[in-house]
Simulated scan of single mutants.
Amino acid sequence: MTTPQLIAFYFPQFHAIPENDEWWGKGFNDWDLVRKATPNFDGHNQPRVPIDKTYYNPCDRDTLKKQIEMAKKFGIGGFMFYHYWFDGKLLLEKPLESFLENKDLNFPFCICWANETWTRAWSGKPECILIKQSHTPDKLLWKSHFNYLLPFFKDERAIRIDNKIVVLIYQPSLIEKGDEMLKYWRELAFQNGLGDLYIIAVKNHQIINHEAFQAYDGILKFQPREAYTSAEFSSENKINHFSFLRKLPESILKYFRMLYMNFNNYHIYDSRKIWEIILSNAYLKEQGLEDKHIFESAYFEWDNTPRYGKKAKIFTRLSKSELQENLVKLLSKAKGNNSPYVFFNAWNEWSESAYLEPDNKNGFENLQIVSNSLKSFEK
């Protein structure tokens, strides 16, 4: 088997939309959060500044072209675009649609449905809903959603596994009758000449409801959150003692989140411990989900200060040699487990300081570490 490909998460919220104008102010996009971030302590690397202050608009074809050329140069194998659909209502769809329209942007891609309700959590009000993700169990809505995605599934650049189009879902446990929906999507895929789909569930934390994952082909561990919420990290992550609360309805959970936000302060977590957990648990399967293929993900930094200010979660940045060593080890485990892809969080999640793109402080260091890791792994 050849070297596993790195697929980087691609975040689209760097352009204004009418809904965000209404909710957050005229012209709002995530660059506003990035620019306004302030340090929580001496030496805190905030605000982050993209190299040459290139606060780009991802709807622009030339921007996408430059990003793809850069990603290719340093060995990234594709993008996983976040997709937002609320029972027929699309948000932040323009970057992905621009990519689809411009066939000369020759780069592998897949789509992840980020199927969560949007709230004012950034401003300490997770109970305040901006747009609700209802997951209405209606075949007409399921078909409408599939039909929107169909041109992307048919695109020659779409990533496949076992000749099946890859699609991911961010929060499987939130979908009412999710098994029926995915069965119907598979039927529609066959009817449209695609063959079967390869559907991956994103795992953000300990799985409480195993039934919600049965209809999937694979499970992607979203890092650093999956390791951070693991039992191994519980001694440093007090909220893990309340993981049982995830069994409660979402309408009740939002009030616990509100209490947590009101009394929480920023925390700094050791990425050495996180990476120890990632590597020791890599490709281990949970009881009851032994038939699911595992996909791992990597990260270099995570710091959501731009979004949460004094209530941020901050994961330390390791040295260049440590980052490279960890990534090489994860790629080696992927190859040993015949996994074709390792995902990376993220290409451009600037408001959570999780990005591979160059910045004014470290230049192209992140991308160079990726390139060096791939070259080292191939020797």
Rank of each mutant, 00 (worst) to 15 (best):
Arg48Tyr: 03
Asn147Pro: 08
Tyr84Arg: 02
Cys110Asp: 08
Ile76Arg: 12
Glu69Trp: 01
Ala158Ser: 15
Pro39Phe: 09
Ile129Cys: 04
Ile165Tyr: 06
Leu140Gly: 07
Asp138Leu: 12
His44Met: 05
Leu100Glu: 06
Asp52Ala: 06
Cys112Phe: 04
Ser98Cys: 13
Lys143Ile: 12
Phe86Leu: 01
Ile68Gln: 01
His44Arg: 07
Lys65Asp: 07
Pro151Phe: 08
Ser123Ala: 13
Trp113Cys: 10
Lys94Asp: 07
Gly77Ile: 09
Met70Ala: 00
Arg48Gln: 07
Lys94Ala: 05
Lys53Pro: 05
Asn57Lys: 11
His83Thr: 03
Asp155Met: 10
Phe81Thr: 02
Pro58Arg: 01
Gly43Thr: 11
Gly78Glu: 05
Ser144His: 15
Leu90Lys: 02
Val166Lys: 14
Ala37Cys: 07
Cys112Ile: 12
Asn45Ala: 13
Asp104Asn: 04
Cys112Gln: 12
Pro151His: 11
Ser123Gln: 15
Leu149Cys: 09
Tyr56Lys: 01
Pro108Val: 11
Asn147Glu: 15
Asn102Gln: 09
Thr63Pro: 00
Leu96Lys: 10
Pro47Met: 00
Lys65Ser: 02
Phe146Lys: 04
Asp162Lys: 15
Lys72Ser: 01
Pro137Thr: 10
Ile51Trp: 02
Val49Gly: 01
Asn45Asp: 14
Pro151Leu: 03
Tyr82Gly: 00
Cys59Asp: 08
Met70His: 06
Leu92Gln: 13
Pro126Ser: 03
Glu156Met: 11
Leu105His: 08
Phe81His: 04
Cys110Asn: 15
Pro126Glu: 03
Phe79Tyr: 10
